[in-house]
Simulated scan of single mutants.
Amino acid sequence: MWCQNSILVFFLGIFHFASHAYDIDSDKVETSDFDVIVGGQTLNYKQDSTTHGISCTFTWQAQGGTMEQWVMKIGSSEDGKQLSCFVERESGTSYLFFMSFKLEVHGANVKAQHAVANGESGKELMDGKDFKLDRKLNKVEAGDKFDAHLIRVGVYAVKMEKQKEDL
C-alpha cells in the first residue's frame, strides 16, 4: 500500500511541476498567422520577436488537401526569463499528414528546456518517441515513431544569465 501511495504522490508531483513550471504571461504573447502549404517540399515560417529577443522557425513537409491556416505564438513570463514558442492549429483539428516537422528557437543566451506536442484529437505525443528535443540546438523535431498527425508543438526555454568574461 505504501508503495502505491508513493507512486501516486510522485506522479502528482510531476504533473504539478509540469503545469506550473512555465509561467507564460498571456498579455506577453505575440501571435502571427501563416499557411501550412502541402506538396511534400520542405517549407518554413519564421517569426522574429524583438520584444522577447528571440525568433522561432517552424519547418515542415506535409501532404493532404491544399493548405491550412496555423498560428505561431511567442511569449514570455512577466520577468522575461521564461520563453515559449508554439505552433498550432487553433481549431484543434488538422487533415494534413506531416512527413516531418521541426521547431527551432534562436536568441542570445536562450536555452530550450522542455517541449510538448499534440497529435490527432489532442493526443499528447511522447518525448523521445514521437518527437525529440535537442537542448543543445534549441529545437524539437519529429521522432522515429511520429505518426504524421500534428495539431500543436511548442518549446519552453529560459534566458540564461550572461557569463562574465575571465579577466
Rank of each mutant, 00 (worst) to 15 (best):
K111W: 09
G75T: 01
N5G: 04
V155L: 15
T59M: 10
H114K: 12
E30K: 07
T66R: 11
S77D: 00
D147Q: 06
V9C: 09
G122F: 08
V153K: 05
F86N: 04
L8N: 06
K139I: 13
G64S: 11
F86E: 05
V158W: 00
F58W: 00
T59E: 13
T66P: 01
V116N: 15
L125I: 05
G128N: 07
G80E: 04
K81R: 14
N44M: 08
F101E: 01
V38Q: 02
S76K: 02
K81A: 05
A142G: 03
C56P: 02
G65S: 04
A157D: 03
S91C: 02
E104A: 14
V105D: 00
D130V: 01
H114F: 15
K102L: 11
R152Q: 12
D147S: 10
H52D: 07
H149A: 05
Q61K: 14
G107C: 08
G64D: 02
L125K: 03
W70R: 06
I14T: 04
G119A: 13
S91E: 11
E78R: 13
K81S: 06
C3F: 11
E120G: 00
F11I: 08
I37C: 01
V116R: 12
Q69T: 15
V71M: 15
S84K: 09
W60E: 02
T66D: 14
V36H: 00
N118M: 15
E161V: 01
E68Y: 13
A115E: 07
L83Q: 03
K73P: 00
Q47Y: 11
S121R: 14
M67F: 13
V38I: 12
F146W: 05
K136M: 13
I74E: 01
K139P: 07
G39Q: 06
L12Q: 10
N138D: 13
D147P: 00
A62I: 10
R152A: 11
S91N: 08
V87E: 03
F15K: 12
A21M: 09
G40K: 07
L133T: 05
A112F: 08
V71S: 11
Q41V: 12
M126N: 10
A117F: 09
H16V: 03
Y95L: 04
L103D: 01
A117I: 13
F17P: 01
A108C: 03
K28E: 06
I7A: 08
A62V: 01
Q82A: 05
S121D: 15
S76R: 09
W70F: 10
F58Y: 13
D23V: 08
V158Q: 12
W60A: 05
K129E: 14
G40R: 08
G64Q: 05
A148F: 12
Q163W: 05
S49W: 04
D25N: 14
G92M: 08
F98E: 02
V155K: 03
Y156I: 03
K28I: 00
D48T: 09
Q63F: 12
S94E: 06
M67A: 12
V116I: 14
N118T: 13
S32M: 11
L133Y: 06
S49M: 04
H52Q: 08
S32R: 13
D23N: 11
E165Q: 15
S32D: 09
K102D: 06
L103N: 03
D48G: 00
G128H: 09
H16C: 09
D48H: 09
I37G: 01
D23K: 14
